[in-house]
Design a protein around this nucleic acid. Sequence first.
DNA 1: ATATAACCTATCGATTTAGTAGGGTTTAAT
DNA 2: ATTAAACCCTACTAAATCGATAGGTTATAT
Lengths: 182, 182
Amino acid sequence: MLSAKTQYAIHALTFLGERFGKGPIPINQIAEHRQIPYKFLEAILLELRKSGVLGSKAGKNGGYYLLRPPEEVLVVDVIRQMEGPISLLPCVSKKFYESCRVCPHAEPGCIVREFFRQVRDATLHAMEGRYLSELLDPHAVKDRLHGQRGGKMSYFSSTRRLLRSIAELRDRKRHSGRKIAI
Amino acid sequence: MLSAKTQYAIHALTFLGERFGKGPIPINQIAEHRQIPYKFLEAILLELRKSGVLGSKAGKNGGYYLLRPPEEVLVVDVIRQMEGPISLLPCVSKKFYESCRVCPHAEPGCIVREFFRQVRDATLHAMEGRYLSELLDPHAVKDRLHGQRGGKMSYFSSTRRLLRSIAELRDRKRHSGRKIAI
DNA sequence: ATATAACCTATCGATTTAGTAGGGTTTAAT
DNA sequence: ATTAAACCCTACTAAATCGATAGGTTATAT
């Protein structure tokens, strides 16, 4: 299970994603809308800023904002950043590899290890190429587009266009043959 | 990541699986072969017995043993027993469902929830229908068969037969349409 | 200057983790 | 009956993690 911290982080990021391009959003706004304890959220956002996901601006009209558009923020990266390894065993993790406590030399033939490698492959496959943009509330995103484009576009044309661009981006990434470590 | 307890449990069960049919195996034998602290392992085996996976026999020549053959022990059941939910969010778990802290009413349209439901489906699909028998060291299983059948069978015929029966069992279960909850 | 808002350090109680210690009970081979 | 071997149970502990909270510092728009 994901810790409360990670869950809060994801929901905070969706809030910021839905308001991408609208300038810095203050912590209390996020905290109120998403029901997250202010001080806890403060620490989470600070961590996300230090890990390069968010930018911040101090002082009046300050707050936090995504450094890149939600279409380019990998959900799996956020989870790894906050939670650590996706793998169920340390010895099948690439990003957080540690030797197993039962077979410290990680024998290549370890059959338990092989099983959990398959599990992590399945989990990772479901996560890879999935972006923050896919977790946003379409209604909020609509507002965001209206805000940027002056509200000239219809709901249907704007969201259809957005969804198409997301699908294209995701498809490109999925078939790029890029190895994604776990 | 799985806790040390769960990892130890799995390895202890493989040890017992490889010796299934040979009567009770004492704790210290498992502890020594699998490098698990004796007292910690004792607690783990006790828990596995209470949850119906293992049987035990006290006294001289006593020990622990699998109540059913390894071909019938689901790995995912062991993980759930020791570790809890497989899901990454409480609100997508069937066996351990709890409401999400961000949306307490678990709105059916929650897009974050949908994402993590897909992830848990993928993880579960990799686990479902996988049995303890698939995690056993073939060499140890060979010995077990030799022990039971008096060593008359050749290595190849015995293991081939075993592997075929495992594959058949797994295939039956995989296509039985049985819903496996998470 | 003032209000606002991020930044930083430190702490804190509760829970979980990964064990350890020691003794009591039951079984069974002799 | 003795006694060794193993199960069973309670309690404890040191460390880490979790889920926050407190309070002061720095930056910035007005």
